[in-house]
Nucleic acid binder design. Structure first.
Lengths: 233, 233
DNA sequence: CGGCATCCGGGAAGATACTG
DNA sequence: CAGTATCTTCCCGGATGCCG
């Protein structure tokens, strides 16, 4: 058997690409692999470390995360950076072009909330919750609403500013916020998307609201979910 | 060995889902499998038969296409319909909710054209070319432009109407078009996106333009590609 | 011919354990 | 903490064959 199978070791003549000039197909070549888009989602609010990403992506294996980060770095969507000496840790950060993928994440997220199978009680990362505020805010309900809302989730804090210009979200200290939600992302999602009364969550100890309680109630009503899709041809 | 491996037949305790309440993750559960979104793209301009889809998706296997169509049907994005007796063929059609996925396809397509690796000379289906007109039309350049452009690609014809309300595309007879492009989708893409002069394509026999030639030239200039992304952090 | 069932090979994803 | 090594599972793609 001198004739070994040469083809299999052919290092991927076309590493499973769609050979298609269509932009959508090319996008799938770039970010269509499993987990890729969710890794990018986790970086949308700023750089993160390997283990932070991993912790916020329940179910991804270290192995797969390594591969995705390598791939995204190779295509120019992510850069690996080393923090200055005091905390010389390595972080991953989106490039300019990487950040420009946010509309993809938003469009997909908005569309999927119409799914009858969507279950908003599942685990949720702090980043996805914050991103959802950018995506799901209803302009009509936000008209005339102007507030600074703080969120304290685990070790992180986020500041959400709502104004006539829309929703602005950043990972930042919550100083100056008129009201602060403190608790797990899932609990906050329950109040905003699940229709669970804030008071009830507080009784359960799942959520703590500090500051203007009325403002908190009004905030939770700004993000209506669209009607579920039926099987209409 | 009475102990057979029971786990493999375990009908997917969690058939590789992201257990994540985030809408984006759920969207990936619905349409994140390989080929799924491209199958939907091919149906965006109306119902198609199995073999039409297959022919327009170079590289998909019959097996995989069957699986994707079954999956999309199960989730309520596609319905299978039988045409009335004269041509009693089976076709696949998007549901209302399926059609609502078009912004996802557009957003991804627009984003990916910034990729340095994007190669617009690859094969392209007629549907993706038509969809790209909806996506890539530049409002500034279309201002005051009003025309009906016909396309004859293989067996199919498409009618594109450009007006102050934007770009409208449908699979329809080309009667009433002021100008008609006849040729392969790749050739037309060369004229519109590749900057190849129409006259040159005609000399090669790759394209035929019938009607208002000046209008044809103006049309090809309506769809500018965005600048390529650099690796800017 | 259109669509589906089945088998097979390769490779991606997942789980676990281990190392600098 | 930040990954690597290894093994298993299972998805994808190709080929073939059945059946309407």
């Amino acid at each position: 058997m001198t004739l070994e199978k040469l083809t299999p070791s052919r290092h991927s003549p076309s590493r499973r690409r769609y050979d298609d000039a269509c932009g959508t197909a090319h996008a799938l070549d770039l970010i269509g692999e499993r987990w890729a888009l969710l890794v990018m989602r986790e970086l949308m609010l700023g750089p993160k470390r390997f283990s932070e990403i991993r912790a916020d992506l329940p179910g991804i294996s270290a192995n797969t995360l390594t591969q995705r980060l390598e791939g995204l770095e190779a295509t120019g969507l992510v850069v690996r950076r080393r923090l200055p000496p005091p905390a010389s840790a390595q972080v991953y950060e989106l490039t300019q072009w990487g950040y420009e993928a946010e509309p993809i994440i938003q469009t997909m997220g908005r569309w999927a909330t119409r799914s009858p199978a969507h279950d908003p009680t599942m685990p949720l990362s702090a980043t996805s919750l914050m991103m959802s505020f950018r995506t799901m805010g209803d302009p009509a309900r936000m008209a005339g609403f102007c507030a600074r809302i703080g969120f304290s989730i685990g070790e992180e804090t986020f500041l959400v500013r709502i104004s006539s210009r829309g929703v602005d979200v950043e990972r930042a200290p919550i100083a100056g916020a008129e009201v602060v939600f403190a608790g797990a992302a899932t609990a906050i999602a329950g109040a905003v998307y699940g229709g669970v009364p804030v008071a009830e969550l507080e009784e359960e100890g799942a959520l703590e609201v500090k500051g203007d309680r009325t403002l908190a109630e009004r905030f939770t009503a700004l993000f209506p979910l669209p009607p579920k899709a039926g099987a209409h041809p």
